[in-house]
Every structure is written in C-alpha cells, then in structure tokens.
Design a protein around this nucleic acid. Structure first.
Length: 424
RNA sequence: GGAGAAGUACCCAAGUGGCUCAAGGGGCUCCCCUGCUAAGGGAGUAGUUCGGUAACACGGAGCGCGGGUUCAAAUCCCGCCUUCUCCGCCA
C-alpha cells in the first residue's frame, strides 16, 4: 500500500512512478476521498468532544436534582449527527482503502519504465551446453527415465498435473534437500507454514483484492467466514507471520525460508510449448523471505539474489540474471531480478527464481512494524526470493545434463541425496 | 463436531449502566535512604492509532473483533474469532 501522505504531498511523483509500470491510476479520486475523510473526521470529532463533556456533567446535575431533559435532548441530537457522520465516514474509508489496496507498488527509482522488452540481462553464468547428438526435451527424458508420469497425473487431477515417480521423486526431494541444507547453513530459519491461508494473508501479501481469481478457494464451512485459499507461494504465508506486530530493531533482519507446494490456477496461461513441468497447477518451491529495517533492505536484496544465483551455480546450470522493467515486476514489488535457466529443447531461458523487494508496501498492508533503537516506529521492509522453484529446475537439469545414450548425469551437489551419479 | 468457561494495558488482576474518560499488585524508569548486598520510602508508567500542528498544544478512538440498546456501555443484547476444560472423531 502506498502511503496516502505521499500521494497527497507528491501526487505528480507518485503518478510518474506508477506510469513506469503502465499504471494510469486515478489519484484525484483518491485525493478526493482522502479530503472527504478528513473533513468528516474533523466535524465528527468536534461533536464527540462536546458529547463527552456534557456526558461527564450529567451524574452531578442529576444528583443536584436539576432537570436533565434538555440535556438529554441535546445529547440525542449529537448522537444522531455523530452516527450519521460515522456511517458516511465508514463508506468513504472503505472506498479509500479499496482504492489504495488496488494501487501497485512504486518501482524503485533505478527501475526502468516499460514492460518485458525493457528487461535488462545483467549477468550470464556458464555457457549453453552443446550436444553432439539430437537432444531430447525434458518430457521425453522424464518419460524414458520414468521420472515423471504425465498421463496418470492428468488422470488423477487433470491438465497441468503430474506425478513424480520413483527416482523422479528422489531427484525432486534431493533438490529440496540441497536448498534447505544451504539455507540452514546460511543462517536462515526453516518454516513449514499452513498451505491454506485466510483472506488477510492474501491482502497483506498483495494478491488480494485484485488477483483473487488466480488462487484456489477452499470452502471449509458454509458461508464465507471460514473461507481459505491455497497459497500460491510460501511468500504469502511468510510475509504475514509478523502481521500486526511491532518488532524490535535488534531482532531484524528476520531471515526465513519455507518449503511448500504452490497452488495456482494459471488460467489461460497453459500453452503447448509449456508442456511438462514448466507450468503446472502445483509445483514445489523453496522460498526465502527477509523482514528488515529500512536501512537493511538494499543489502538484503543483494544477499537474496546472491543466494539464488549460488544455488543454480551449485547445480552447474547455465542461466542468466535479469533486472525486470517496472511493468514486468509483480504488483507488490518495487524491484525484481529474475534468474532464468536455459532450457535447450525450447531454446529459451525460463524463470526459476524471482527475487523481489516490496520495500514497505506489504508492511503497510498488513501493519508489520518495528521499533527503532531510539523508540520510533516504522514499517519493515519485506523481501522475497525463490530459492528455488524445483519444478522448473528439474527439467533444466535433465535437459542440460543429458547424454547421448539417453541417460542423465546427476549434478555433483545432489549425489549425496540421490545416492547415484547417473540416471539410466 | 457437541457442552461448559474465559478473553481488561508489558504481566497478574478488580470491575453487572454515570463517584472508573479502568482500582490494585508485579515489572520497568527516575528519586531518596542505606558504605556493598538484602530490605525500605516516594514519584512516574496506555502502548497504539486517527484528526490536528512547522513542532507543541488540543481533540477523537481504544477493555478479543464487529454490530445493537441507552442521554451514557469494560459492564446489557446479538453475531463472530481465539484460548482452556470435558466429550466425540481422527493421522
């Protein structure tokens, strides 16, 4: 959520920043609601002050045997006006809050305007593997090596679902273990959160109210009160852990990571060329999150990018790192770097990690704050990064590590978990 | 899922309509006394949030959350959430 005071004081600056991501927001409408809100509050509070004052006198007057009827009459009038104002205020505040919740984050100053085509590759690691034989794509490899059962996955859950079988499951699990082991070694705290979250989590992370249709809803009871949704990423859970809390500066940064499957509708996104595990309704991901002070935020971002890169490098996969243009960053984020790994059969790079800094955007939505050493209160910054999405790494591994005989070499770092160096 | 009880500030806790715009205690902060320690005496202690201000001042909200009744609600009524105890079900 963008600070209303900033919108008020630097309307043009906010407008220009939003424009970078292609958002033409109606800030005048918001400013109008804001002015209206403060006007109502001002008038209502004057009435409330009078009411409190008069009310305090009543017991004394009553005791003295004075006629309090005229006072009751005045109190009734005040009460009526106050409740009328309060009702109006409630409407205005709901509208204003909704408008503010729908505004995307402001991109950082150094994030360039434009969409995907303005993304900038800032690092390339390794080289495209060259093959002296006709290569297979990951679907062929996973089928021939019996790592994945696509057909039965569809039988069980429909299009966009698959089963990891036998060594396929072992590899997937090995990847998760490799990531988890690394994060623990780096001093991050391992979290296994609930997969069904309440509405406030979606609101706080920034998925709601605008992107409610992208997640799976779970009705756990009749009516709406107990409604939950399946988390689309562990970030949604992790950035809400401290929701509504005031943390101590000395306890920051919080460095967390979680493993969860991610559940996404991906409505309309499923394309023929994204067969296999490139895009599914459920995929595994280890997610890193940092909750930091304002000052720690930049360094934390670099740290998360570095960690994500190190994991891919550890696997020996050729990848590139891109800094996304404003329009390609997701709505909650001020900056995002993507790690894209080379998929030989597709001849393109596919995202396996996305590292982002929300600055205080999520913290303002879910009221996560910290008290500084000198007693001031400020919003935390929240950052997140995949570390990593295994379900996209596995296709990259089998394709990049494939051999002429159809076997796949197991990356060094996974061998301790897989117990083999070659998949035949 | 059923029955019962509870939710008050950093913690414990009093409080069934106005002398409570929340008593008392603990803790914490400061002061006094005591050469150290123990003990004692005194003062302060509602965090937060919203409006307002250049900043103060000042004012509003706030007793789990949301409504309602009333001139007036921590207190009465309704809905919800959470916790505890017992029962049921269950990996």
């Amino acid at each position: 959520m963008i600070d209303i005071a900033l919108i008020r004081n630097d309307t043009d600056g906010v407008k220009a920043a939003l424009k970078k991501r292609g958002c033409d927001a109606d800030l005048n409408g918001i400013l109008g609601l804001d002015a209206k809100r403060r006007d109502i509050i001002g008038r209502t509070e004057t009435l409330k002050a009078e009411k409190n004052k008069v009310s305090a006198d009543i017991p004394r007057l009553k005791k003295a045997g004075e006629n309090v009827e005229p006072i009751f009459k005045r109190m009734r009038e005040l009460g009526d006006q106050i409740s009328a104002n309060d009702e109006q205020l409630k409407t205005v505040e709901e509208q204003l809050r909704h408008e503010l919740l729908c505004l995307p984050n402001l991109p950082d100053p150094d994030v360039v305007a434009g969409d995907k085509e303005s993304n900038a590759v800032i690092k390339v690691w390794g080289k495209k593997p060259e093959f002296a034989f006709p290569i297979k794509n990951h679907v062929e490899l996973c089928e021939s090596l019996h790592l994945i059962d696509y057909e039965r996955g569809v039988k069980l859950a429909g299009n966009g679902s698959w089963l990891y079988t036998d060594r396929g499951a072992v590899i997937e699990w090995a990847l998760l273990n490799y990531f988890i082991k690394t994060h623990i070694k780096d001093g991050y705290t391992f979290i296994l959160p609930p997969h069904m979250l309440n509405y406030e989590c979606g609101l706080g992370a920034g998925q709601f109210p605008k992107f409610e249709d992208d997640v799976y809803r779970v009705e756990t009871a009749e009516g709406g009160a107990a409604r939950r949704f399946m988390l689309p990423t562990a970030e949604t859970a992790l950035v809400n852990i401290y929701r509504g809390e005031i943390l101590q500066e000395k306890d920051l940064p919080k460095k967390l990571f979680a493993y969860t499957p991610c559940y996404r509708k991906e409505a309309g996104s499923y394309r023929a060329e994204e067969r296999g595990m490139i895009r599914g309704h459920q995929f595994d991901k280890v997610e890193m999150v940092q909750v930091t002070t304002t000052d720690q935020s930049k360094a934390a971002f670099e740290e998360l990018v570095g960690k994500a890169c190190a994991l891919v490098e550890g696997l020996g996969l050729h990848y590139r790192l891109s800094k996304l243009a404003a329009g390609d960053c997701s709505a909650s984020m001020a900056r995002t770097y993507d790690i894209e790994v080379w998929i030989p059969s597709m001849g393109i790079y596919k995202e396996v990690s996305s590292v982002s800094n929300a600055n205080d955007y999520q913290a303002r939505r879910n009221m996560t704050r910290y008290r500084t050493a000198d007693g001031k209160i400020d919003y935390v910054h929240t950052l997140n990064g995949s570390g990593l999405a295994t379900s996209r790494i596995l296709p990259a591994i089998v394709e990049q590590y494939q051999n002429a005989d159809g076997s796949v070499t197991v990356p060094e770092v996974l061998r301790e978990f897989v117990g083999a160096s070659l998949l035949l």
